[in-house]
Design a protein around this nucleic acid. Structure first.
Lengths: 347, 347
DNA sequence: TTTCACTATTCAAACGTTTGAACAGTATCT
DNA sequence: AGATACTGTTCAAACGTTTGAATAGTGAAA
């Protein structure tokens, strides 16, 4: 019933009494093929329900037109929006995008890379899992001469293209904002400093404190996985200090949310007693009350730029991977969790 | 420098002075190949940095071991968790998963299917875009004899495997819960009724009203895209009624959130004046105050079952697509937005 | 009429792997 | 010694497409 055997270019050739190569050339609009033949082929394609076989053409051409994307998780405003833009841009150029998730796991990330290479992708656009410290699997990609573009979470030592915001400056801007709100003791819930971006956020935070003559106090600085529970736990510890902070800057929105929950449970006024800022502009930060101030990482722009960087690399035949950082400006979004002035006005 | 030409099975053969077929058989652990040869091949694979070419093997074997997944959007608790489980299950069986997003757009969905077919996937697991009413592109999949599994959003007329919850019963349960909370005038913010699941939610709602002797009032029933703005707009309209409802059941959490915002802005007590229930258990429903009661759609289970259904189909050589609905039980999660008893107890 | 240029097509090999059949060599049984 | 069975390997074709070179056919220029 359903045509068990799939129609191939040969079937079309047979039907039209021409050779497979003529069909192939007609399909790719070769100038030497007559319009008559092209029309006939187009018709036969419809009639016979022909579906080109990507496997065969990719094998022959040595180019799969597939691009692999690795994200730590798709379930995030930032990553899903980056991915969407990558796909939007690349599909315009005839590429298909394979999205894989590492779920923040190192071994999953390795497996993803392995299967993407096996699938013969023409390039890989990736953001590292939190767990990842060893970079051998990324080196493998490079060693095969396949373009590798990192975004958001990448390491300089990889020496490849990178697209992201300036974490140092973003962090600095947050502290500056909190200082302007009159905060004097600013705590930091950071990510693990083995990751470049979190390290930079910590340094930006510290440098800003120094720049604004605020105390750098190690008991106000924590490293964590930045999950809700981490935010809760650390906030509790901060509240137990003899001198608690008057502001908390978390390097991730979920940690900020955990902190907010603890603050509310302890009836501490936000932002007036303790102001709060997160990082990443997750959807929920604008949905809850009070809204959480945060950093917009410009996911759309990052996605588009990552895609365009890949296109540049793949089209440059004699290109060698080297460190090339594209830094886009981030944006501080001030919401109620750190907007003291608004609340002062009202009272 | 970087081995420009990729190592193939032939290179290994040459290095070991055996034939390519011996190498191929050694790699696939063929019983007729001696252990000595197998060991030598394994060593050469490492030494020469050999990477199997999926394109070639898939072409020859007529099986790509690729499965396409189409979701309306990855940026959602439900879909990303379904996808994660599908991947988890299928990767155990040696399949790679290609995730694509339709962004709720009909034309994007068509393009996704086209490129998945072109990539020669062995099967497609999909959830329909909101916009989709015509099903020709899905019929194309069937006509090629490729297993198609729908989940959550599917239509019976497609006559394929389907995995999802019972929307009718879920909806019924919500109304029953609201009745038990003492609500008498229950409004419904529904999705578009051309979609099976939303239609069923509407019918379940109406039938429950009848079953519990509550009025079915058309001015309390709306259809929409279920976005935040829709929830806001409709809630405003409901409040302007001469007799506003004492409960609102939205067929989506984002619409419920919009409604909640309007209620708070109008200082209407939730749940006591108006109780509120959503649908889907989006992350934020548990993060905001008050938490929004909602339906847990059992995303993990649905993902696993969809994957397993695919495996069953792909391994059954003479299988013909037919309607086969796998319905899993949903779970009503009662949070503060509809838990009157809790608030009565306290007062 | 030969030569040249052009057009439309065919030829044949290639991409890298898999696989059943064929084959040679050795061991086992009668 | 001959038949039989088993082991380990090679042979050759195939999967569906692409592509440069070759070829045939037409018309025009010399």
């Amino acid at each position: 019933m359903e045509n068990k055997k799939k129609t191939t270019i040969k079937d079309i050739a047979k039907a039209l009494n021409i050779t497979p190569s003529a069909v192939s050339k007609a399909l790719s609009d070769h100038p030497r093929i007559s319009d008559k033949t092209k029309k006939a082929v187009k018709k036969a394609v419809k009639d016979l329900n022909y579906q080109p076989n990507h496997l065969a053409s990719a094998l022959r051409k040595g180019k799969s037109n597939l691009v692999g994307v690795i994200v730590p998780r798709a379930n995030s405003n930032f990553f899903s929006s980056v991915v969407q833009k990558i796909e939007e841009r690349l599909s315009k150029e005839g590429y298909n995008v394979i999205i894989t998730q590492s779920n923040e796991s190192f071994s999953k990330e390795c497996k993803n890379i392995e299967s993407l290479l096996y699938t013969q992708v023409d390039g890989i656009i990736a953001s590292m899992a939190n767990e990842t410290t060893v970079l051998d699997h990324y080196e493998t990609i490079k060693s095969k001469g396949i373009p590798l573009i990192m975004f958001d979470r990448g390491e300089d030592t990889l020496e490849v293209d990178y697209v992201g915001i300036d974490d140092y400056n973003s962090s600095f801007a947050v502290v500056e904002h909190l200082k302007n709100q009159g905060c004097k003791r600013i705590a930091h819930i950071g990510g693990y400093s083995h990751t470049r971006i979190y390290k930079n956020r910590i340094i930006g935070y510290k440098d800003a404190l120094v720049a604004f003559n605020l105390p750098v106090d190690d008991e106000l600085i924590y490293e964590s996985k930045l999950k809700i529970e981490d935010g809760r736990r650390i906030m509790q510890q901060l509240l137990e200090l003899p001198k608690p902070p008057d502001a908390v800057f978390a390097a991730g929105d979920f940690a900020a949310l955990g902190a907010l929950q603890v603050l509310e449970e302890n009836n501490i006024a936000v932002p007036n007693d303790i102001a709060l800022v997160g990082f990443s502009n997750e959807t929920f930060t604008s949905l809850i009350k009070p809204g959480i101030s945060t950093i917009n990482q410009r996911s759309e722009l990052i996605g588009t730029l990552a895609a365009e960087t890949f296109l540049k690399r793949v089209n440059d035949t004699n290109w060698k991977p080297k460190l090339n950082k594209i830094i886009v400006d981030s944006e501080l979004i001030v919401r109620d969790s750190s907007n003291k002035t608004k609340f002062l006005d009202r009272s």
